[in-house]
Computed example of a mutant assay.
Amino acid sequence: MSNAFRDKAFATSIRPVTRDRGVFRASEALDRIARESALAESTGERFPEHRVEAELRRHYDLTGELSRIPTEKDDTYRLATEVGRFLVKIAPVTESAQIVNLQSAVMMHLERTGPAIPIQRLIRGLDGQIESTVVDPGGNARIMRVMTYIEGDLLSSLTPTETQFRQVGSALAALDGALTSFRHPDESRLLVWDLKNFVHMRPLLEMVGDRDNLSMATWIFDQFEAVVAPRLGTLQTQMIHGDFSPFNVVVDPMSDTFVTGVIDFGDVVRSPLVFELAVAVANQIGVNERHPWGNALEIVRGYRAVRPLSDRDVALLAIAGPARLLLRALIVGWRAAIHPHSRDYGLSHAARDWTRLRSALSVATPTIQTLLSATGTQASQTGAE
């Protein structure tokens, strides 16, 4: 694809916005995916800090200063104590105990099998438990967990070098390597962020008011259905982190490995391995307008240096990467409409997604596919974005 969207040459038919008394009507499939992703409207109340403090004393014998961290759906706090800092997470009412346990099980698996991978560790409670049931002010039972706090800078706060971007890819490959053998009864959960379900997100296009954005988004859905969806049954599949974004990667520019921590296992799911890379790619494409795919290509190069992926599969990132970026833009708009309290969190992460999509799609898709395939070689790729 070329500069089509800047020229408005890819205009498509625009479907009218369909709402019932101002409320967006999603498909049944989308409704179910949102519900099982714990993104459906919740009747649960936020946990007030004094109640969290009481539960921490009761279950973990921990006391200290709490500070809330904005998140998508759960109640998350930073806890500063005399013995160090911790992260406290209380799952939303809409998230089942089984799904919370899936997340915990992944972390426990990595603790046993991947000690070199710097992830948060679950803190055991007074009875040796890694999960504690607590009751919010509305009488809803919810799951509390306490984790170690990984100090350092987030990847999102820095401008890495090419070598450092390759190290980000290598760290992701190592993480996925440790997850290869992981199995869990709920591993194939329905998750709105999982690109396996991307085709079911098309109804969200009805919320896109900008004509050019709608044309661009429609093209991405069409390409995904034509190129990626037919390959789903053939792709290498395993448990993946699912949200390897710059906000979940802790780094230290002075460290030889650069990546010093991986956090937030809330989106773990069994899915095609290439979709794991799609998240990392989506968070980098379009960031540099002059070289919209440059950073992403280095991540893929670093990944493939540690974990092999076929050229045919990697080429799918030319569509899957933009699809994942579009997915975030669509879900943020949707969530802002039904959950006003999450508006600031979402918009802070995705305010520029539409602009970045235009930048990423200004490079012809066959060109990107060729560049992606070349990441498996040792040859240096320059001026290719």
Rank of each mutant, 00 (worst) to 15 (best):
N248E: 12
V17N: 11
Q223C: 14
G233K: 09
A116R: 12
A280H: 09
Q120T: 15
R231N: 03
K89D: 08
R202Y: 07
A217T: 00
A278E: 09
L325G: 01
A315F: 07
L361I: 12
F275P: 01
V88S: 10
H109W: 10
W193T: 08
Y149Q: 00
K89F: 10
V269Y: 02
R145Q: 08
H349T: 05
T180K: 15
R58L: 12
S96R: 13
R290C: 04
Q284V: 02
V52E: 00
D264Q: 04
R202L: 01
Q236M: 08
E131I: 09
S255W: 03
N197P: 01
E289V: 11
V269M: 01
F165V: 01
P92N: 04
V168K: 09
Q381Y: 02
G84R: 07
I33N: 07
L205N: 10
L102P: 07
E385C: 02
N3F: 07
T257P: 02
Q103A: 08
T382C: 08
D31R: 15
S255H: 04
E162M: 02
G302R: 13
R304H: 12
T159Q: 14
D344C: 00
N283C: 07
S13F: 11
D74Y: 05
R6S: 14
Q378W: 01
W354K: 03
Q236L: 12
A34I: 14
W354F: 13
